[in-house]
Every structure is written in C-alpha cells, then in structure tokens.
C-alpha cells in the first residue's frame, strides 16, 4: 500500500516549525525518523494533510551534558545511542536498551523523541525512560516546559502534548556510580513488539528506587517509589527481597485480568530485578 497524498515541509528552525504546526485548517503531523509513522502512512491508517519534517532543525539534534543530566535532542536516533556517539550517563543502560529496539536499519533512522511521541505501549523507550525518571522537554507556543516521562504518555498512542507543542529533547538524569538497573523485554522474536517489559533502577546514592511494568497495551505501570515491591530492605539484595504481591495488585488495578499476560509482566519485572542484582 502507498500513503494517501500529503504536503511536506522541512522547516529550518523552531519558530518555523511551530508556525506550521499551529495550522488549524490542516491535519499536521510531525515526522522525525518515520519508522513508526512510515508503516502507518503506507497502510493509510494515518492520513495527514501536511507532514512536517523536523530533522533539519539543529536544536533537535543537539546533545548537551550538565552536571546532573544528559540532554538528548528529540532527533537523536537509537543507533546514535547504541553506538555511543552520544554521551551516556546511565552506566550503559540506554545503549543496551537501544540495541534491542527493532532492527539496525530501523535504529539508524528511528529517534528517541519520535518513539516517545508515538506512544506505542510496547515500545522500549517509554518504559525504560520512565524507570530512569527522564523528562520530556517540551516546546510550544507558550514556551518551554518539562514533563516526567511517567506522566507523558496518557494512553495508547496518546501523550500529554497540547496543540502546537513538540518534544524538543529528553533529559536523562545522571545515575550515580553505584546505581543498578535492569531492563527485561519479552517478545516473540528478536526485534518484534514487546509482550512484556520490566525495568528497574536502584540508585541508593540519589535515594531512587523505581520500577516499571511496561508493554501493557496501555500506559506503563510506574512504581516511582518501588519499595512496596520488596519485603524488607532492598539493600539486602533486590532479587531476594522481591515480593510480587504489590505488582500483582497493580496489574489487577490496571485491568490486566488475563493470567498469561499477568505472568509475563511479572516474569519480565522479576528478571529485570535479577539483572539489576547481578554483580
């Protein structure tokens, strides 16, 4: 199948971009690497009037390091992260997650910002970045704001962007040296959509213990204070202390009633925790 007809513009700067996305008479869709949008266009599931290619805007490819974070422009690709072309402040977590996204040829064009905005629950970044407590840095007609990733996705393919707003960059907090993380994805075959994702970050120096149950076919379940997932002190060893009952309740509350689905989510979380606990 071929896409339906649309116009295409590639603005030079953010002002030009915002001007285009504010066109209310048109169905405007932003295009970064197009690796999720491309199939939807081809299948005519998405039929925009205007595609605005954001990849010629220098600010969106900018990479910046601060004392407590690395800021990755929205158009940084999975391969940029996988190959270590951008700085990593996560002890290898991001590059490892990146190399498990789809396939290499897709990673060469797919972007971190595009993946977040697309908000497919089965995608890797939304769960991984929620665990790491990253922020979406948003630019819109009324200026800039930041939203924690765990509040960014609001539903299947739905995010908390107002009309005219875009994700400019992702702010990734710098993990302490002693931080432990785990990310486990269960999928039917290499590169395919996740059936379940478990992610955990334990950064005692910053007093952070976060966990995520992802790929739920809706928003990921985020435990921003994940202590209830553990009986006793997690310091005694995350894997040993893991107590599934809080996770089971969270899955039930999220309406995940299917026994097999629930089991896969629990196993993914448990394995992420095991991974974080491994020396």
């Amino acid at each position: 199948m071929k896409p339906s007809a649309f116009d295409y513009e590639r603005p030079a700067d953010l002002d030009g971009l915002i001007a285009l996305t504010r066109r209310e008479d048109l169905f405007v869709k932003m295009l970064a690497g197009g690796q999720s949008l491309g199939p939807m266009l081809n299948l005519r599931l998405v039929q925009p009037d205007l595609l605005v290619d954001i990849t010629a805007i220098p600010e969106l490819k900018r990479v910046e390091e601060t004392a407590d974070a690395v800021i990755l422009g929205a158009c940084v690709t999975h391969a940029d992260i996988e190959d270590g072309r951008v700085p990593d402040a996560t002890g290898g977590a991001l590059p490892r997650v990146a190399c498990g996204i789809a396939y290499r040829a897709v990673r060469n064009r797919g972007t971190i910002g595009g993946s977040l905005v697309h908000a497919d629950p089965a995608a890797d970044w939304i769960s991984c970045l929620a665990a790491i407590d990253a922020e979406a840095m948003i630019l819109g007609p009324s200026g800039r704001r930041a939203i924690p990733i765990d509040e960014f996705m609001t539903g299947v393919f739905q995010v908390a962007l107002e009309p005219g707003e875009l994700v400019e960059a992702v702010r990734i907090p710098r993990l302490s040296l002693g931080a432990r993380w785990g990310f486990h994805k269960i999928s039917r075959k290499t590169g395919e959509m996740a059936q379940a994702i478990g992610a955990i970050l334990h950064d005692p120096a910053r007093d952070v213990l976060r966990a995520v149950i992802g790929a739920t076919e809706s928003v990921p379940i985020v435990f921003s204070g994940a202590a209830p997932l553990f009986s006793g002190s997690p310091g005694s060893g995350l894997a040993k202390a893991f107590d599934a009952s809080a996770a089971v309740r969270a899955l039930e509350d999220s309406g995940i009633t299917d026994a097999v689905d629930r089991q896969l989510h629990l196993v993914a979380l448990k394995r992420a925790i095991d991974q974080a606990a491994r020396p």
């Binding site: 590639r10 030009g16 008479d25 969106l60 391969a79 072309r85």
Partner: peptide, 26 residues
C-alpha cells in the same frame, strides 16, 4: 563508521524548505 552527526540517517544534508508556502491540500 561513516556516521559522525546525529539524527536519522540521510537527514544530515537536507536543506530546509521555504516555510510559509504550504499549499493547502487540494
């Protein structure tokens, strides 16, 4: 590795299109 810049492969040399001249779809 042939890649030094960031962003989607193939997007690096693309010049911006003139903005403001967006024709409405037919």
């Amino acid at each position: 590795s042939p890649r030094a810049e960031f962003g989607p492969a193939g997007s690096g040399r693309a010049r911006p299109t003139a903005v403001g001249a967006v024709a409405a779809a037919p």
